[in-house]
Each structure stands twice: as C-alpha cells, then as structure tokens.
C-alpha cells in the first residue's frame, strides 16, 4: 500500500508542477490544488500506514499504555488542518483569477507583464 501511495504522491507532484508551468491561469490554479493534495497524501504516507490498529486501549485490557504498532492520529489532524487552510486559499485564488481575467482580458500569463517592465 505504501508503495502505491508513494507513486500516487509522486505522480500528483509531477502533474501539479506541469500544470503550474502552463500559461493559462486556470491551469495554474488546478496545479496549486493538486500540489495541496500531493502534500496531504505525503504526510499521510510519511506518518506510517497502519491499517486496523486504532490508537485505543480496549476497556477489557489491563495495559496502561499503548503498544505499537498503532495508527498515529496526528498526521490525520495535520491533514485536516491543511485541507481547511487549502480550501480557503483556493477559494480566494479562484476569485482572484476570475477578477484578473475580467480586468486584464486574458488568461495568458505571458501577457501579464505590465508589472515586470523596468
């Protein structure tokens, strides 16, 4: 499972960077969204995948502390935070590209050079 996810993460990074290098701002936003997903899946994978082992001590058990292996809940908490932040930022980015398209009249990044000229 870890190997599969590693390839998925790699593929997502590659796809997002490819999209970000395109000239259209719509594709730029898609690239940024994919990049967020790639980072989230990476955290999940890097935090070890332990299926079927919740981090709970059964009430029937005598143990006072959790023995590994168990699924670490922290990466999921991190991802949840990152998803919420990513959602807000992407919503803003979508409005921004729409306003930019309306104001500048093009979605081609190469034509948005008025701020770069000396």
């Amino acid at each position: 499972m870890q190997t599969v996810l590693a390839f998925v993460v790699g593929g997502l990074y590659a796809a997002s960077l490819y999209m970000m290098l395109r000239r259209s701002i719509t594709k730029l936003i898609i690239g940024l969204a994919l990049l967020g997903h790639a980072a989230n899946l990476l955290i999940l994978t890097a935090g070890r995948l332990v299926p079927g082992q919740p981090p709970l001590i059964p009430s029937t058990s005598e143990a006072t502390r959790l023995e590994p292996p168990y699924a670490d809940p922290l990466p999921q908490a991190l991802i949840l935070t990152a998803i919420v932040i990513g959602f807000g930022v992407q919503a803003f980015a979508l409005v921004l590209i729409r306003r930019t398209y309306e104001t500048v009249g093009t979605d081609d990044l190469d034509e948005m050079r008025s701020t770069d000229r000396a």
């Binding site: 940024l32 790639a38 921004l96 948005m112």
Partner: peptide
C-alpha cells in the same frame, strides 16, 4: 497581475513547507 504571481509562488512555497513538515 502582481497578485497572481505572488499568490502562485507563495502557495508553492507553502506546499513545499507542508511536505517538509510531513
């Protein structure tokens, strides 16, 4: 126009930061 560039590159940097933290 400036915002598009600023937003894109700073989000890229945030994603790298997040990956590194992971």
């Amino acid at each position: 126009e400036g915002s598009i560039k600023y937003v894109a590159l700073n989000l890229l940097s945030s994603a790298l930061f997040l990956s590194a933290v992971g």
